[in-house]
């Protein structure tokens, strides 16, 4: 393959995990190194030129949809916005499916449990108004709104979930993304389901299991701080418990 790419073409050594839920192994590929190349470019090049059966998932290619996350050299990354030259280790890339999620095939994971946990954390908006009511005006500088300025930017890429050691140790744990979502709604003054939500995030699989390792914060591509959101939930649930509300 190196010869096919030309004598003067720099070549990346790429190991891609291939398999399904019952197991798999790393397959080796040689991929031409290009200027401003992303990890998603590498995976796409392999599929188009070397192995059309390679399965992976992507959509927008510009860091908005949160679809293309994978493990790159052992760390969870959004592959469409991760430049090869920034993560290359000894001219080698190892690309694997996201940690903590069941594999469907190759680099494509089953996200069902990830989104089911959103539901279990009451990550759904429950309106308190009808269409006949006036629109609620929320000042951008209000305490509740500023507390979730960053948290509402989550793109559901599951990178935080893959980075979380507590999810690995305790698969029932709701995880940073679902709890971050719950925190945005706890601060939504229009929501009408706060007691149920605080109870949901106080369950045996809830926010109190977080050890504040901050891996979610370290790897979040949108620079959100889910650990801070979870700390907010811990405070809110502690106050609600001590005051007898939940």
């Amino acid at each position: 393959m190196a010869r096919r790419l030309g004598l003067h073409q720099e070549v990346l050594q790429v190991n891609v995990w291939r398999g399904n839920a019952s197991g798999g192994k790393h397959c080796h590929y040689e991929v031409p190194s290009l200027e401003s190349q992303t990890i998603l470019d590498v995976v796409t090049w392999i599929q188009r030129n070397l192995d059309p059966k390679l399965s992976y998932r992507f959509a927008c290619r510009v860091g908005m949809c949160g679809t293309c996350a994978m493990m790159v050299n052992g760390k969870p990354r959004w592959t469409c916005r991760t430049h090869v030259r920034k993560v290359l280790d000894n001219n080698t890339l190892t690309i694997e499916p996201l940690r903590n999620l069941p594999v469907i095939k190759d680099l494509a994971c089953d996200m069902s449990e990830f989104f089911d946990k959103w539901d279990r954390a009451q990550g759904r908006f429950h309106p308190s108004k009808t269409r006949s009511d006036d629109v609620v005006r929320i000042p951008p500088t209000s305490v509740h709104r500023t507390q979730v300025d960053a948290a509402i930017e989550c793109i559901n890429c599951a990178i935080c979930y893959a980075a979380c050691d507590v999810v690995q140790w305790n698969p029932d744990y709701l995880g940073p993304a679902a709890l971050n979502r719950a925190w945005t709604l706890v601060n939504d003054v229009r929501d009408n389901n706060q007691t149920v939500r605080l109870r949901a995030v106080s369950s045996d699989a809830g926010c109190h299991n977080c050890h504040s390792h901050q891996s979610c914060t370290t790897y979040c591509p949108n620079e959100i701080n889910p650990t801070a959101s979870i700390a907010g939930l811990k405070r809110a649930t502690a106050k609600a418990t001590l005051s007898g509300k939940i």
Binding site: D172, D204, G206, H208, N209, A238, L242
Partner: peptide, 8 residues
């Protein structure tokens, strides 16, 4: 594994 009461 721990809820809010054990946490508190």
């Amino acid at each position: 594994m721990i809820g809010v009461r054990l946490y508190l």
